[in-house]
Design a binder for these strands. Structure first.
Lengths: 132, 132
DNA sequence: ATGGGTGCTTACATTTTTGTGGGTACTTAC
DNA sequence: GTAAGTACCCACAAAAATGTAAGCACCCAT
C-alpha cells in the first residue's frame, strides 16, 4: 500500500530483527513513539530521568496529571521496557518507578527536547507579532 | 495552586523572558511540546529535516496522515515559528514547507529520538516474554 | 472516629483528536 | 469532456484520550 513498506534493504534472513521506520503507518515503532510522545509520556520519562519516584511523588512532580493517566502512562512505558516498577510489599503500599537502561537512553533524548523548549520559549511564542 | 508556579528565581525585571517549565501545568511550553510531540508533529518535523517538501510530497512521505491533519499540524508548527511556509503564486498552487533555523534545532532532537526508536525496536518490543 | 495518605482500578461523562467526504478554482493529460 | 493533480477548508461523525468520582484495604495522626 505504501511505497516505503517494501523499501527495507534487508541483507540477510539472519538479522535478528529489522530496523523500524516511523514513516510507515504499520510499523510497530509508531506505537512506541506514541507512548513516549504522549501528553504525559514525555513528562513521566523526564521526571524519572531526574530521579526514581514513587507514584504519588510523580503525581506531585508532574503538574496537572490525574491518577488515572499516570497509572496508564506508566503501564505503557513499562510494557515498552522503558520503565521499571518495583513494588515493596509493605502495608501502606510503596511502589518505586525508575528508568530501565533502555529507558535512560530514550529519556536522554526527551530531556534534551524539553530542555530545549524551556530554554527557547521566548524565541518560539515570544510574541505573536504577525497575524496578517 | 502548584508549588512550581512560583518557583522561578527571577533575577531582574529586564530578563527578556523567563525560561519555561514543562512540569508546570500552566506553562506555555506545554503547548509547544504538544505541537511537536503530537501524533503527526514529530513526523512532519523529521520529514522536513530530511528536506524541504511540498504539501502533497509530505503527505506521501508520512504514511497514514490525512490532508486535514497535515494542514493542521503544519499550521501549529508554523505558529510556533518552527516551520516556514513559502507559497508560490503559480496557477496550479505550489507551496513549499521547510524548517526555520529554530525548527532545525528542534527537529534535531526529534530526529535523534525517532532514530533511536527505529534502531532499538528489537530491544523494546522485541518479544513480550514476561506477562507474569 | 474522622480525615488523610498509599497505589491503584473501574464506570461513566466529557473533551479532544482524527477521519471522511465534499467543495474550490484552475490546469494538464487523455 | 472527463479524470486527475494542486493545496487547501469546511461540516459532520466516529474514535480516542482524558477527567471525575468512587471504591478498596489498611495504616497513622488527631
Amino acid at each position: 500500500m505504501d511505497a516505503q513498506d517494501a523499501a527495507a534493504p534487508r541483507t540477510s534472513l539472519l538479522d535478528s530483527y529489522e530496523r523500524g521506520n516511523v514513516m510507515a503507518a504499520a510499523c510497530p515503532s509508531r506505537a512506541v513513539l506514541s507512548h513516549m510522545t504522549s501528553r504525559w509520556g514525555v513528562l513521566v520519562m523526564v521526571a524519572l530521568q531526574e530521579d526514581t519516584h514513587r507514584f504519588s511523588a510523580l503525581r506531585r512532580r508532574i503538574g496537572g496529571i490525574s491518577e488515572r493517566m499516570l497509572a496508564q502512562t506508566l503501564q505503557n512505558l513499562e510494557g515498552d521496557r522503558l520503565v521499571h516498577r518495583h513494588a515493596l510489599d509493605t502495608v501502606p503500599p510503596h511502589v518505586e518507578y525508575s528508568l530501565t537502561p533502555l529507558g535512560r537512553e530514550a529519556a536522554a533524548h526527551l530531556a534534551a527536547l524539553t530542555g530545549w523548549i524551556e530554554d527557547n520559549l521566548p524565541r518560539i511564542s515570544g510574541s505573536e507579532s504577525d497575524l496578517s
